[in-house]
Design a protein around this nucleic acid. Structure first.
Lengths: 197, 197
DNA sequence: CCGGTACGATACGGATCGTTCCGTATCGAA
DNA sequence: TTCGATACGGAACGATCCGTATCGTACCGG
């Protein structure tokens, strides 16, 4: 979005940029998707609607940036422990993040909007899903080196099962994603947690 | 919707009822959710918009009825074979149905809309998800009686894993739900298919 | 000082939703 | 046959939203 560092004329206000994304997050968290009109974002950010459309092509793109900026920092994979425990830790981290309405609602809204917006669907996959998947894939391969005797499940299938169950509960059944139930999921797929205290 | 069989005045036209649901299905299949305006449904059904809003409270409710009417008949669980094979068969049936755009798009649209419509979310769970779950639950318990030695996975967790993976691919990654990949999923959770030809 | 761009404010066209009003049609009951 | 009650198609309405356009003004480098 900001590849051209220096162009003629008045530079774009960094303050306006942040205000827009923050307003989008706040409105989406508080009011949900129906309350998220571009006019409302503009008013809440103290910004002209013109300024929003000068930077993003449409409402979904604003939402996408607001979401990834808020969540990416919170989803750094664990760096310590066995690969197995790091995998479990990462799944827990995603589940924990998504159990907060402030993250869950924007994500759900993006998934919903992406169903009839192919560009947004691609962006969501590339900028959020694929990142989580790549991290998980790397850790899983380490796990399978640590435990070569364990069932050699296809890593892609494993990821689909675990994250699938997570998002299934999130989007469809609406169940809580508390740590205990996430552990049950992981135990079912990976075998019992060896560090089970 | 039609609990009162006999009330005074002119009875509601059954023909209009069917025309509305059929028009909703047709438009949703062809145009997707954004193209599904109530005006368009009314026009396509040869019906006044007034008539639609006399019967359903909003657009999502119409969509809900249209979807369940169209799909419930196609999701009768298999009646023959071992319980294990019937379970696999049912999952395949759901996957096959959802791989058709004519069913996939309405479902995805409903899931999307249900994210900010609690009533619709409840209806979707009670009238679609819960039905599939109850059927699966019954079959799984039979499976576990057939194979008491097999891993005693919590049936709820099992269902979350399998259907979760299905809907994860459907809603988020956009992967195909062809029979082979569904079999891989099932093998990963249940063990290899004993009737693997 | 000047061209170029961003800014806030405001208005607009187009579309949609859900509601409301007509006059007419169709039912059961009196 | 008459009458109340309801449904019907048609049409219009207010409110909302999106994305675009047009103001005059503010800020940048040359």
């Amino acid at each position: 979005m900001r590849e051209q560092e220096q162009r003629p004329g008045r530079p774009r206000s960094e303050r306006a940029h942040r205000a827009i994304l923050q307003a989008a997050r706040a409105l989406l968290t508080d009011e949900g998707l129906p309350g998220l009109s571009v006019d409302a974002i503009a008013a809440h950010a103290g910004v002209s609607k013109n300024t929003i459309y000068r930077r993003w092509p449409n409402k979904a793109a604003v939402l996408m940036d607001a979401f990834t900026e808020a969540t990416s920092a919170k989803l750094e994979p664990p760096r310590e422990g066995t690969a197995l425990m790091r995998f479990r830790g990462q799944v827990h981290r995603v589940a924990q993040l998504m159990s907060e309405p402030a993250a869950r609602r924007p994500f759900v809204a993006l998934v919903a909007a992406s169903q009839h917006d192919p560009e947004l669907a691609t962006a969501l996959r590339e900028r959020f899903v694929a990142t989580r998947r790549a991290v998980a894939m790397g850790i899983i391969k380490e796990v399978q080196q640590e435990h070569p005797t364990a069932s050699p499940m296809d890593p892609d299938v494993l990821i689909d099962l675990v994250y699938g169950a997570l998002y299934y509960r999130l989007l469809i059944t609406g169940q809580d994603l508390d740590a205990a139930s996430v552990d049950k999921l992981l135990d079912a797929v990976l075998g019992p947690n060896p560090e089970n205290t």
